[in-house]
Amino acid sequence: MGRMKLAVLTALAAVMLGGCSPLDESDLSRLALPVAGSDRSIHMWYLWLGTWIAVLVVFLLVFGMILYAPIRYRRKNVDDPAPVQVRYNLPLEALYTIAPVIIVAVFFFHTVESQNAQLEEVENPDHTIEVVGSKWQWTFNYLEGAPGGEPVYDQGDTANLPELWLPVNESVKFELISPDVIHSFWVPEFYFKMDVVPGNIPGKDGNNSFTMTPNREGTFTGRCAELCGVYHTRMLFKVKVVSADEYEAHLAELESAGQIGTPQGSTTADTVAGLEASGESDTED
């Protein structure tokens, strides 16, 4: 009977959440996630959906037992004896221990599967962008270069947010580096983030890189998701996913503006809007 109830609860939870989608306009139907913007987002979505189903099953089961006990064993008369108390029941206590372990193990298994799918390498990606996270700004080096053949870059600060331009439906490899402390590159619409670890060179000292394909045009807000100092909350950037022609035109604009090369964290990396002296923020970090 217990197995039947669990099966019914699982089916009920699946039916309730089965109509959800990462592309739905309703926040409720997306289970509070932003609208997906990457080909890799689907893996995290299934993990998120499965977690909600498991949580709902546990909630319905526990809440059902909480309601069942006082209704089933309520006293009809003041002289009625109290129900028999269960103490030192080894099978029941074993269940209390084993069930959570099984739940955590299942979560762990699917988390690793999702992580492996997110980090799956792509041979010969269409574009390679070097992401430099430094206190407290971002620099994006487009390594494939502009029409002239030289790498170009986008850069900004806390007052003028930098922009990361990406071509829709074309694969992009992100190589992450930091000249100072640990940052974290996060675009919520991509359902993925990765730490930017100083001294960790992509392809040499570890896998500080990942590949994905943006599949929805639009303007998103990226941010640092690792507490990196006093002005961590202001370490933001804009992501513009555009057509291939607009992307190429932007690279040409950067070349015309003289933004050629691959900055690795400029001398203004410690300058924050509102502070006059560069390096003053170092004393506050």
Results as ranks from 00 to 15, higher is better:
V241L: 08
V241M: 12
V242F: 05
V242W: 05
V242Y: 06
S243E: 03
A244L: 13
A244D: 13
A244R: 14
A244C: 01
D245V: 04
D245Y: 03
D245P: 00
E246Q: 09
E246W: 06
E246G: 03
E246S: 12
E246M: 08
E246I: 01
Y247F: 12
E248L: 14
E248W: 05
E248S: 14
E248Y: 05
E248H: 15
A249T: 12
A249R: 13
A249K: 15
A249H: 13
H250R: 15
H250I: 00
H250S: 08
H250F: 10
L251Y: 07
L251P: 15
A252S: 00
A252R: 03
A252I: 05
A252H: 08
E253F: 07
E253L: 13
E253V: 03
L254T: 10
L254C: 09
L254Q: 04
E255L: 07
E255Q: 15
E255T: 09
E255N: 15
S256E: 15
S256C: 02
S256I: 08
S256R: 15
S256K: 15
S256V: 10
A257M: 12
A257K: 15
A257F: 07
A257R: 15
G258P: 12
G258T: 07
Q259I: 01
Q259G: 04
Q259P: 04
Q259N: 14
Q259C: 07
Q259V: 02
I260D: 04
I260P: 00
I260A: 05
G261Q: 04
G261D: 02
G261M: 13
G261E: 03
G261S: 05
G261V: 01
G261R: 11
T262L: 00
T262V: 13
T262A: 01
T262D: 00
T262P: 01
P263M: 07
P263R: 07
P263C: 06
Q264I: 00
Q264L: 09
G265M: 03
G265C: 03
S266Y: 01
S266D: 12
S266Q: 03
S266K: 07
T267I: 05
T267F: 09
T267A: 13
T268Q: 13
T268C: 02
A269V: 01
A269S: 11
A269P: 00
A269L: 14
A269F: 02
A269I: 02
D270I: 01
D270V: 02
D270E: 11
D270N: 14
T271G: 11
T271Q: 12
T271I: 04
T271P: 00
T271F: 08
V272H: 08
V272K: 11
V272S: 01
V272W: 04
A273C: 06
A273S: 09
G274L: 05
G274M: 10
G274N: 07
G274H: 10
L275F: 14
L275D: 03
E276Y: 10
E276N: 10
E276S: 14
E276A: 10
E276V: 12
E276P: 00
S278E: 12
S278D: 10
S278I: 06
G279D: 07
G279A: 03
G279I: 01
G279S: 08
G279W: 13
G279H: 08
G279T: 02
E280H: 09
E280G: 05
E280I: 10
E280C: 07
S281H: 09
S281C: 06
S281V: 13
D282T: 06
D282N: 14
D282Q: 11
T283P: 00
T283E: 14
T283K: 10
T283G: 01
E284C: 02
E284D: 05
E284F: 09
E284L: 15
